[in-house]
Design a protein around this nucleic acid. Structure first.
Length: 216
DNA sequence: CGGCTGATGATCT
DNA sequence: GATCATCAGCCGG
């Protein structure tokens, strides 16, 4: 049994594009501990990012590897935009774009620690344990009501979906291999918060976390 | 916890 | 027509 981390309600500040690292891997590290905030007519739902993966255009596993198509075109936007895609006939997943305009790179968000709007997220997901609410790329988009209509959203602007920080110190970060890939499965491009309170919210096999390298 | 499987449809070849 | 950057439910240990 794991008690939710007790932290006072974070005061969130919108992140500016200038604060976001350009390089996709640097951006992935930077985003661990930051917040994704969803505002709609039902209210606010937000979560702290505790797991993500990097995809760069030069990586055969990336959607953008073969160039721009109607589906992936938002991945080629300047850093700090949303790339939302539909997968396995049932789920959406969201990336935060990286690199400069014209390069197809980004960071897949894989898990959040629920912050604001827990009841709202539970109503969207069905009542589930706090640690299961937004653990996994398809679950977190369901919890935050993210679909293709949010594809291309500028996350550094006021709007339905944006990035924030509480200006606290970044948690320790671990690195391991990405999940669900056939190609390039060995690359160490999955990042997660090693803070003990955060680990129950990180997706994937527990053994992979235990055997992972310490990045920071 | 780990392993397996069916569901389900857009996208690209 | 094959391929998915997945999930829930079920099984066994």
């Amino acid at each position: 049994m794991v008690a939710p981390a007790k932290r006072k309600r974070a005061r969130l500040r919108r992140l500016a594009r200038a604060e976001l690292p350009v390089d996709a891997e640097d951006l992935a590290h930077f985003l661990i501990g930051k917040y994704l905030v969803r505002d709609d007519e039902h209210g606010r739902a937000s979560g702290r990012i505790v797991e993500n993966e990097t995809y760069h255009q030069d990586d055969p596993a990336a959607h953008t590897h073969r160039g721009e198509t109607p589906r992936n075109r938002s991945m080629f936007l300047e850093r700090g935009h949303a790339y939302v895609y539909f997968i396995y006939g049932m789920w959406y997943a969201v990336n935060i774009t990286a690199d400069v305009r014209g390069v197809g790179a980004g960071v897949l968000l894989r898990a959040l620690v629920p912050c604001d709007g827990v009841a709202l997220m539970q109503s969207r997901r069905g009542s589930v344990r706090l640690t299961d609410l937004a653990r996994g790329p398809g679950r977190l988009t369901t919890a935050l009501a993210i679909d293709r209509r949010l594809d291309g959203t500028d996350l550094t602007r006021r709007g339905p979906l944006w990035l924030a920080t509480d200006d606290s110190r970044a948690p320790p970060i671990g690195v391991t291999t990405r999940i669900g890939l056939r190609k390039e499965a060995h690359r160490p491009l999955r990042f997660f918060s090693r803070a003990p309170d955060d680990l129950p919210y990180v997706s994937g096999p527990r053994a992979a976390l235990a055997g992972s390298r310490v990045l920071l």
